[in-house]
């Protein structure tokens, strides 16, 4: 296969707090090929958003500290880029959709103003960035996300739109100019299930049509199953299992993945499972060895002392666990 579009190698991110360093990410490895749809699944607070924010270098400055790791975009390390190069990546390479559409849009500017700004600063040539061309691109993008009457929408303020429409506008902004990689951070989470379904179908359709790569951050295994080719399961700042989507659901291996899968209420009925004992660790004093061991039903002495690394069990199915 060709080189990956994005490759994260052994990424560590710490946050500075009053109590000391909060060691959130603990060696994350992840890669995405061209045209691939990848899911990053984990519970709240496991570091999914931190990972993706560090890709765009939009972590809170002064608080976040990256002691180790590389984020390679076409082989160039984003963490070492100069502002100019970084600007290139942000305007042409990678775009991101945020979880809360209401917070991602500025309430005091019209949708049109905000969209025109995105297009204006996306590195178009002088000829292309004429006013009428910008407007044409914006209208086309709004049409692509199936919102009727784009001209009227451009003059609307975000509070005049419903949650589903706002999220569609955010998607339109992310795809309005050609990008290689789209990072979607729980785009459906704050929406109702029927609207979420529409947004996800739209997103998949657009990514496939434009041959983009997609990283889908979600806490829902069901959403990841419907949208992605390959899934990374994340727990407490570590990737614990990687597999093709069909393999992961047919043959989940890591105890955390198993616990997560059994906790999901099923449409087939049969009651609710027990859940996973305990909760996500305190990052100021994370447990030694495997970070999952205090909650793991299969933990042995070795898990407390040594950190398991991802091992390939064939066919790209990787697990970080001694017991598998």
């Amino acid at each position: 296969m060709s080189n990956p579009v994005l490759e994260i190698k052994n990424l560590h991110v710490w946050y500075r707090t009053y109590g000391g360093y909060s060691r959130v990410l603990d060696g994350v490895n992840l890669h995405v090929y061209k045209g691939e749809k990848v899911g990053l699944v984990g519970e709240a607070g496991c570091g999914k958003t931190t990972t993706m924010r560090s890709v765009l270098r939009i972590l809170p400055e002064g608080q976040a500290h990256i002691p180790e790791g590389q984020i390679l975009y076409h082989g160039n390390d984003i963490l070492k880029m100069k502002p100019r190069e970084l600007q290139q990546v942000r305007t042409r390479g990678i775009s991101m959709i945020f979880q809360e559409p209401a917070a991602a849009l500025n309430p005091v500017f019209t949708v049109g103003t905000q969209m025109f700004d995105v297009i204006k600063y996306s590195g178009l040539s002088k000829e292309e960035s004429r006013k009428d061309n910008i407007k044409r691109l914006a209208i086309q993008a709004i049409k692509e996300v199936y919102i009727p009457d784009p001209e009227r929408i451009l003059n609307c303020y975000p509070n005049q739109l419903s949650g589903g429409m706002k999220q569609r506008i955010c998607i339109a902004m992310a795809i309005v100019t050609a990008r290689e990689l789209l990072i979607a951070d729980e785009p459906g989470t704050s929406l109702d299930v029927t609207i979420q379904d529409q947004v996800h179908r739209l997103l998949r359709g657009l990514v496939e049509k434009k041959e983009m790569s997609l990283i889908m951050i979600t806490h829902s295994l069901g959403v990841a199953r419907e949208l992605t080719d390959r899934i990374y399961v994340m727990y407490a700042g570590n990737i614990v299992e990687v597999a093709r989507t069909s393999d992961l659901f047919a043959n989940p291996l890591h105890p955390y993945t198993l616990g997560l899968l059994s906790s999901v209420p099923k449409l087939t009925g049969g009651g609710v499972a027990e859940g996973i004992y305990g909760r996500i660790p305190d990052y100021l004093r994370p447990p030694g060895g495997c970070r999952f061991h205090p909650r793991c039903p299969r933990a042995v002495q070795r898990c407390r002392e040594e950190k398991p690394l991802l091992r390939d069990l064939g066919d790209g199915h990787q697990v970080a666990c001694f017991q598998v």
Partner: peptide
């Protein structure tokens, strides 16, 4: 039926229970 067909599920057995060919449209 629209609600049921919109639910993201985690297994094939569940997929079989969802009503087919109902595509969610519009908003409340």
């Amino acid at each position: 039926r629209m609600l049921l067909s919109s639910i993201p599920v985690v297994s094939e057995e569940e997929e079989a229970l969802k009503p087919k060919k109902v595509i969610s449209t519009g908003e409340i």
